[in-house]
Nucleic acid binder design. Structure first.
Lengths: 115, 115
DNA sequence: TCAAGTACGGATAAATTTGTCCGTATTATA
DNA sequence: TATAATACGGACAAATTTATCCGTACTTGA
């Protein structure tokens, strides 16, 4: 696994949030789990642009950061389910408000982002 | 300058927000400008861990994304000031709420983030 | 005149994140 | 008996972001 070479900077609350939510697909993952799409395979199918490897990595980070928890059922074939922790739940209103901001300004932003 | 090789993904509002705010120091920069720390030199001194080069790049992106605007006074020595656009202003409550979330959960998060 | 302040930018290296290709194991279905 | 589904992980390549080191130009103050 990759080992950090420089310390993370978490001076302020903003940084804590960003540290947890940065990652190309993390918000999607949290949002999916919130909407009952909770098994690895389901998540992959729901977010087809992301590779399995990356989703796995980001799910693992979300678990490590206390946003998601995963339950592994001891059955064959294997079954795993992710769910929001209490901390993860507390993130939902914020995610919702950032999404709202994005949608409200989509027209303007799309133009600017795509040069 | 660096040229992207893969298209950006902005399916949802969350992504629009992340696209604009991702970058190690962007939230700090926006927050500083909101608090009247608006000249390049001031910003560098306020955020000493960031290199000038990176701050310049992120400021430029924030301007390109319509969050900040910069006014260049034609004086010697040169003087430049950044300010929030209307779009940038609309981001303030959201930044505030993410910061609040981070601070409220700092103890827990610090522990988790630092392994 | 020399050092330090104002501000900006190119070229390249280092760090980090994301993607690709390989592999493991078990079970149900065609 | 293949094929696909379940789920996971190592090794490495490619893309992207951040940092370092070089340079420009002008002005003020010691």
């Amino acid at each position: 696994m990759y080992e950090r070479k420089t310390p993370v900077t978490i001076d302020c609350g903003l940084h804590l949030f960003m540290e947890v939510m940065n990652g190309k697909w993390k918000i999607n993952l949290v949002w999916c789990v919130y909407n009952e799409i909770k098994r690895p395979g389901e998540l992959r199918r729901k977010i087809p642009n992301a590779t399995r490897r990356v989703l796995e990595g980001q799910l693992k980070q979300l678990v490590n950061h206390g946003i998601l928890s995963n339950k592994s059922y001891d059955v064959k074939p294997p079954k795993v389910e992710y769910s929001l922790t209490e901390l993860g739940e507390s993130l939902i209103p914020i995610i919702r408000s950032t999404a709202k901001w994005g949608e409200e300004n989509r027209e303007k932003l799309e133009k600017l982002i795509l040069e």
